[in-house]
Amino acid sequence: MRKERFTLGDVIIYTLLALLSLTIVFAFLHLLSISLSSNAVATKGGLLFVPREVTFDNYSRVFKNRYIWIGYKNTLFRTIVGTSVQLMFTALGAYVLSKKYFPHRTFWTLLIVFTMFFSGGLIPTFLLVKNLGLTNTYASMILPGLISAYNLTIMRNFFQSLPEEIEESCMIDGAGRMRIFWQFILPLSTPILATVALWLAVGHWNAWFDVLIYISDSDKRTLQVVLRNIIITGTKELDLGTASSSVNDEPQISSAGLKAASIYVATIPILCVYPFLQKYFVKGIMVGSLKG
């Protein structure tokens, strides 16, 4: 195969693929240049892919913003706590429903799977969360989506593929089912647990809608929502957050450069972690496509 020559077709293919990637790379370069250039250069913008009249003004303003840090803290909190709690309950349900001898297993499974296809909708769910007194609590970011039927099904399939003999021999040694679950099943299932944990973590990191509708307390807002206020609603979020900024600070408050800097500050963790985790995500997509 190697001996095939590099043909005109290859040139076209390589070029097309390069073009797709370059649009992404240049988008990020453009944003970086806007965020690092002086206000005058950024306002003119255009085909700007290298920062000019470099200044770190925008970044220092973003870092001075109290809400960016609060957002980071809350996002980290919900990602860590939310992912672990969700993973635990998903695994519990998946384990029980993987047991063929569990009474009415089909019924319980269908009860869960049905929620994948039909839901009460936005308002009934919103009213429930409100009536439970969960608005403005961290619980509202975790509980309403505690278990995804899809993840549970995928995990259940994995548990089912584990050999039954493990459990039988443990039972003979006198271990209860809960101990078997904790000490034998979970350690054997690290591939699937890691995959689902990654999905959940990305979901939490990027989640914003639940915060938008359930949280009005600005000290509980996550990074995505703080960012949304800066770049989309274009409010004076930064004004509120920066203790030192005076009220008559000119309207460059949500200038293009400041928005771009905020985006970078919020995206850097993903850009740093992503290359290392990429292959696990790719593996994960294969798990998901294996007949759910």
Partner: peptide
């Protein structure tokens, strides 16, 4: 016989009833 498994499934079913099926009841709105 499988009371321990029931105990493990209980919170899961409770979640689906509370956060998925009760809102379905809210459809009457």
């Amino acid at each position: 016989k499988y009371w321990d498994l029931c105990l493990m499934l209980l919170p899961v079913i409770a979640y689906f009833i509370i956060f998925k099926y009760i809102p379905m009841g809210g459809i009457v709105i």
